[in-house]
Amino acid sequence: MTDAIEPSPGKAPSFWARLSRRRGVPIATILLVFIGIWYAAAIPMNRQVIVQRYTLQDVDWTTSMLIRDSWSYSRPILPAPHQIAVHLFDSVFMQKINSRRSLVFHTRVTGTATLLGFFLAAIFGIALATGIVFVRTLDRSLMPWIITSQTIPILAIAPMIIVALGSMGIRGLIPKAVISLYLGFFPIVIGMTKGLRSPDPLQLDLMRTYSADKWQFFRYLRWPASVPFLFTSLKVGIAIALVGAIVAELPTGAQAGLGASLLSGSYAGNMLAIWSALVMAAILAMSMIGLIQLAEFLNSKRTGGRV
């Protein structure tokens, strides 16, 4: 059975207990259904190209042949899951790690830009939120610009940033990190502004009775109160920073990075390459969010959170 092990009252469950508590059976069922639908969909999706080939080669084809071929055709419109798995395995483990055919190489390029951009976004976002909370005029003057910045499609602004920075001789990692920063700081500013304002009037009055100064208000009350908001916004921020890094790799026709793999795959009509790159991007995002979640868990243990 998959009954959850209830933690004893007053005692936080360990990280591993929480992991194993997750319900495996329902998740596996959904996954199987999903894969089944995928395999079924691959047949009509690939039918046209395969039948065309049969006609060209003048072969008599049967339904079972069509099914077999639509799950194994080398240039499918919708590749079957096992084809993606094979392609992914091949491009991750069977290539030299520094070659452009290795997805590890591309993932590292994109991952580095994402992390750098995210790191800057976190600092920038927290600093902005702090300013907004402590200086009333900043709230009025900055907030509209922060919101406006996110209404401009990133696809429009990314090439401008890359060309502008390129003309100053800055290429490669930095422009991509800047675009990650541009997207990633937004949820962090919004979340942290909310978090730094989350203490209730009583908690604020208490600090006033201790005649605490502004810095002590921040250090003992506003900052610790905002930490749950911080982790939530960091998770959103890092996912969107990855989107930024991938988008930033498109306009230059960059030769490296997951965005570049997606672009070259789409130029070549190579759906397998596109799917593999997408899966890698998902794995990258999940592991980065997982790291933040781990940090959040460790912190909430220290601060007595009911996780």
Binding site: L202, Q203, D205, L221, A225, V227, T303, G305
Partner: peptide, 9 residues
């Protein structure tokens, strides 16, 4: 205060 106003963290 009327409420304990403890800091939960």
């Amino acid at each position: 205060f009327q409420a304990p106003a403890l800091y939960p963290w």
